[in-house]
Amino acid sequence: MAVLEGVNLKKYYGKVHALDDVSFAIEGNELLAVIGPSGSGKTTLLRSIAGFVKLDGGRIFLHGEDITDLAPEKRNVAMFFQNYALWPHMTVFENIAYGLKLRKIDKKTIKEKVEWALEFLGLEGLADRKPSQLSGGQQQRVALARAIVVEPKVLLLDEPLSNLDAKIRLRIRFELKALQQKLGIPTLYVTHDQEEALSIADRVIVMHEGKILQSGTPEEIYRNPRNLFVADFVGMNTIVKVPAENGLVKVGNITKRIENEQKTASVVIRADEVNIVDATADVSTKEGDLVLIGVIKDRLYLGSKYRYEVEVEDINEPLFVNHEVDVAPGKKVKMIVPEGSYFIF
């Protein structure tokens, strides 16, 4: 049985379909990530599970029990709020102990549990501070401690890293994953950062305008996107439009069959996975690899690599691809895009 299951969830705000027939399930102790651009309904989904949004349709089950109409305080799903929602009038200790006190646990046990949480999250020595005296990263960990210390059945994380600096974010991403695995709490992790989701999730759901477009393992989502939106949303891409005739699209050496009525097709190329060689070089390619000939128009130095603007024969738009080899502008090059690194829709 699924730990947490949503069946045909619907939520409308006037004309906006914040949740449009959303179904999902969390199995075992997995970390399920929900990704999608801002406004796609991710927060609404979390808040409806926590009980703060009244659904217009659908049911939610926690360990098989229907919790759709249960009051928020009776659900035992701990929510991590995007802006932390720490209580400014309480110390770190009081913030973390709050949920335990409500559970009528004796003082000594509360103290032990809070101290465990403080140590677990590297917050030793901060117990008596007020939230306003903490850095963003520390506040984030206090909010996390407050949620996990009550041993919830499910952890709901709403963009837990979005308020942190880029560098800290990268480090904490993996700490969070390690922590989730150590605790073994089933987790629903909402983020608009696809890279973050792909790197830590066991499974990923892609949402757009209240709908689930695709769900699967990070590899499935990345290597087998079902449509243009998903292909474009994950990874670093360069996209060009090409004409389609009678349901056939021709790009470089590749011809692909698509829906008949489409006049143009989109080619999505993973910008980091393109090999650039001299146009005359004789490189062996596999069946299914996309080979494009073009001229380097411009070059941008990015540190570990260069970003190239390439004008490709028969394509009106420039391609932007990354490669570590230094090639001078004006040079004619051959670009080899392996199968699975480009998609035509």
């Binding site: 928020p72 009776k74 035992n76 407050r146």
Partner: peptide
């Protein structure tokens, strides 16, 4: 007072009055 501060407490099991 942000409503999230109240919801965070409710989420951890506090009744409305609490």
């Amino acid at each position: 007072i942000p409503v999230e501060l109240e919801q965070a407490a409710q989420n951890l099991g506090a009744s409305r009055l609490k």
